[in-house]
Design a protein around this nucleic acid. Structure first.
Lengths: 192, 192
DNA sequence: ACATGACTTGAATGAACGTTCAAGTTTATT
DNA sequence: AATAAACTTGAACGTTCATTCAAGTCATGT
């Protein structure tokens, strides 16, 4: 089947799912071979190394995250309600059986001590997402307050990404979010 | 030097530091051998496996954490001020060069997909800590509110454990904490 | 003084790891 | 039809992994 190049995006999607679930060390290249259906040679020609593959997965995930946030906040009646929708979605995700937190958060914690190049990317992606929220909040609040609210929001989001594993149920989490983020318009549309 | 048994607690302390920094997959048994000065045979006789060693490290860390919390909250003028001290300490930790978050949080995220026995312990330890805060808050608030405040507090603590890696500086983090936890007595003694 | 038992030692084990590359297969060009 | 280029293939590489165990060393009970 040579000369029929594989679908790069599809491979990256498969890798993202695998790495997201298993982590960098937890997923072996053999697992990647199995997940993508590609042979080692092809993977290494296209991505150079396991790290290159992980990098591509991170980039894909970060892009998807940004896109989802933008779409949710642009679609919602207001920025505040968009953020509420986003948070409710995260809480709902945490309730699913195959919940695996946030790929960027997991990667940050796993690779923090490695000091590799991946770490810079992860930090960039996470910072960009905080900046994105701050940008949207800047429409409704003065810059100083927008930044402060964004930081508080991000703190809560990171919190969910860990707390979601404890299986305390969505009610406890939503109640905790409403306690810590009282400036959000929680009263509107509790539906997803 | 046979018949001179090694100091079990000291070995566990060394392992805790190693696993805390590097993670379960990230730290090899060779690393453990180097860190503890023991030979593989001794380690396996005493702890059975790498997992057993990790379990011991988790237990030690969780015990230390509980003890620190209890001591801080018992010593402080009030529960609220004790919690503030605890949070300020976490923010200060996050500023250090060798910051490595919370061992339990890191372990939860790394091992979530493994489904091993370790996972149950980790969840137990994390839950116990939340319960501990709830217990102390129960002194100042009715049960319902105490539980809600504890959940919100834990969400913030988990948030710090991730946010701390982004290197935004202590001021941004403290400001975010004060935004999300306005019911705490932040006005008292900003010193550590 | 000696035998027993407790503990340590560290080389060895097979499996799994990330990675490579010579050979094979198909499409594009001539 | 033949050649070149592009891409895939999968066995094989050396390394590192967690783990084992026969041999060694010392404190203790007699």
């Amino acid at each position: 089947m040579a000369r029929v190049q594989f679908d790069r995006d599809e491979v990256i999607r498969d890798c993202t799912q695998l790495f997201w679930q298993q982590g960098f060390s937890g997923a072996s290249m053999q697992d990647v071979v199995k997940a993508t259906g590609l042979k080692p040679g092809s993977l290494y020609l296209a991505f150079g190394s396991k790290e290159g593959l992980y990098q591509a997965a991170l980039e894909y995930y970060a892009g998807q995250s940004r896109e989802t946030i933008r779409q949710t906040l642009d679609t919602a009646p207001s920025v505040g309600e968009g953020i509420c929708r986003q948070l409710r979605r995260m809480v709902a995700e945490a309730g699913q059986a195959d919940y695996c937190s946030c790929f960027l958060v997991k990667s940050q914690l796993e690779l923090a001590s490695s000091g590799g190049d991946l770490l810079h990317s992860i930090r960039d992606y996470l910072s960009t997402i905080e900046d994105l929220y701050a940008e949207y909040l800047g429409r409704d609040y003065p810059p100083e307050q927008a930044r402060q609210y964004a930081a508080s929001l991000i703190l809560h989001i990171y919190g969910i990404r860990v707390y979601g594993y404890l299986g305390r149920g969505p009610d406890a989490m939503l109640s905790a979010l409403q306690t810590g983020l009282p400036w959000l318009p929680w009263e509107f549309e509790p539906a997803v």
